[in-house]
Nucleic acid binder design. Structure first.
Length: 481
RNA sequence: GGCCCCAUCGUCUAGUGGUUAGGACAUCGGCCUCUCACGUCGGUAACACGAGUUCAAAUCUCGUUGGGGUCACCA
């Protein structure tokens, strides 16, 4: 049987890294097995759901390259994929459950129950109120406002096998008669989830461990309906650096934040997958390697803490290594960040050359755009502190000499230039450092840059000499003062 | 508090009875060097605790402690 898995976000905020990881594991499983990856929007809470959130989540998914085979925008045989549009389906099954005697209508008002809950809470905050089953055997019809509650067995235990955590057994008397359908007819999560997972033919439910406690209730529903159980895989939680649960409202861990910072999707995916899943000592994976090697049984059971520094390093690795991101890919990705700095798309070949020089120096695409800036801005922005320190009277002679030397350089190529200048440095007794530093500021405007000779090659002879001459002017001006 | 889950360096993890407990990030030092990076070499750093089982336990069992999740007409 072909695998069908789903990602079921509730659109009440950004897609955060924890949610993205859940989606990723499901997506990898589908892609590895030629299965189907479904996105289903769980928006039965009208209060908290928003279309903006739907768009934010879908945009993030798309950017990460997790394409879905069924769901919003693409449709599919089980449409609609918004739970808010499936009300009558849930209502039908709620009725069926009542008819089967597995559920009942409860006419207790929310106000009354809230009052009892507050009372119980006041009496003992550690022992909260649980619905006592007032309407359990009353057989109410639909004449009064009602909710539908599931009739939880008073004895026995509910058992299921989790792919990550193994066998899980929960005594039934620890549960209470939970609500399936609310007064307004909207289903509650545990119910809509089961109905949809069944109707959509989900074979494996991969979700966060925060759902582990819901699963026994859902298993009861499958059993009451005589539906086959999907397999379950619960993922250990990704906690923030302090060890608390990640929130969708914390923009600091939103996927789109890392996009804006200039991480690549592959870098994000790589960090996320290694959080809770591992394959020996391998740290870096391509997208295809992940698809090929993912498996549920290599997921650990312990929760972890999100680590910004490690994330940054993995992202850097995916930016730095040509076998992970081609030069063309890099150029394409950095382009928008250059545009944001007001730099127009430079010549493709020159951009490629320039990227090669800054590649080990840029941890993000924002860094990259910043590091590339001087190549494409004429004149380059001059760092005042660097100029004050290095374009001074002492720099006049080295710069004059360098310019002379370069004018006559027979071969405008990095190694040739370097050895040529080094020979001259030795002959003249001017230290390499005293030549290179002023030249660097003249050429790049900064005290730190890629290697001098690589820079000159990218700039070409004419622009290099032009910039050095300008630097020389500045140095002379400083000397005159 | 009930129920459920978890426990290896600061962090992510490898490890499935016998290892000098490995890797990565971070951190500290050396090297490379025209700057900054990259790279490279090396250091500090972990099996929560206590009982068992066993010739042998990070690995199995039980307990303790600690952490987390969840207990809504949220998802």
């Amino acid at each position: 049987m072909s695998e069908r898995v789903r990602f079921a976000p509730s659109p009440s905020g950004y897609l955060h890294v924890g949610g993205a990881r859940t989606a990723l594991f499901n997506w990898l499983w589908a892609r590895q097995n030629g299965g189907t990856f479904i996105v289903r929007v769980e928006d039965t809470d009208q209060e908290r759901s928003s279309l903006d959130s739907v768009r934010a989540v879908l945009d993030a998914m798309r950017w990460l390259g997790m394409d879905w085979d069924e769901g919003p925008e693409v449709g599919g045989p089980h449409a609609p994929y918004f739970q808010s549009e499936r009300r009558d389906i849930y209502a039908r099954y709620a009725d069926e459950l009542v008819e089967r005697g597995a559920a009942y209508r409860c006419v207790c008002t929310k106000e009354e129950l809230d009052r009892q809950r507050a009372e119980a809470l006041a009496k003992n905050p550690k022992d909260p109120f649980r619905y006592p089953g007032t309407c359990r055997d009353k057989n109410h019809d639909k004449s009064k406002p009602y909710v539908v509650r599931f009739k939880v067995p008073h004895s026995g235990a509910t058992v299921f096998e989790d792919l990550v955590f193994g066998p899980i057994s929960t005594p039934n008397d620890a549960q209470y008669d939970f609500v399936l359908a609310r007064g307004d007819g909207f289903p509650v999560y545990n119910f809509s989830c089961v109905v949809d997972d069944h109707l959509m033919g989900i074979t494996l439910v991969g979700r966060g461990r925060d759902h582990l406690g819901n699963t026994p209730q859902q298993v009861m529903l499958y059993q009451a309906m005589d539906w086959a159980l999907p397999r379950f895989a619960h993922l250990p939680l990704m906690l923030d650096k302090k060890g608390a649960k990640l929130s969708k409202r914390m923009a600091s861990v939103a996927v789109q934040d890392y996009r804006d910072k200039g991480y690549t999707p592959e870098g994000v995916l790589n960090y996320l997958v290694r959080f809770g899943w591992s394959l020996g000592d391998q740290e870096i994976f391509t997208r295809q390697q992940l698809i090929d090697s993912f498996s549920w049984d290599r997921i650990g059971r312990a929760d972890g803490k999100f680590d910004e520094a490690k994330f940054a390093d993995v992202a850097f690795e995916h930016l730095k290594e040509p076998h992970l991101l081609s030069l063309e890919g890099y150029a394409e990705r950095v382009q928008p960040f250059l545009a944001a700095r007001g730099l127009s798309a430079p010549d493709k070949q020159q951009l490629g050359q320039a990227i090669e020089t800054i590649r080990p120096r840029a941890r993000t695409l924002i860094d990259a755009a910043q590091a590339l800036d001087f190549y494409f801005r004429e004149p380059p922005e001059l760092d005042a502190a660097a100029a004050a320190k290095l374009l001074v009277a002492d720099a006049v002679a080295p710069l004059e000499g360098l310019i002379e030397r370069l004018k006559n350089a027979p071969n405008w190529e990095a190694h040739a230039l370097e050895s040529d200048v080094k020979v001259w440095s030795e002959q003249s007794g001017i230290k390499m450092k005293d030549i290179a530093q002023p030249a660097r500021v003249a050429l790049t405007g900064k005290a730190a840059s890629p290697g001098l000779f690589e820079v000159m090659v990218v700039l070409g002879r004419e622009r290099s000499l032009q910039r050095l001459a300008r630097g020389l002017d500045v140095a002379r001006g400083a000397g005159a003062r």
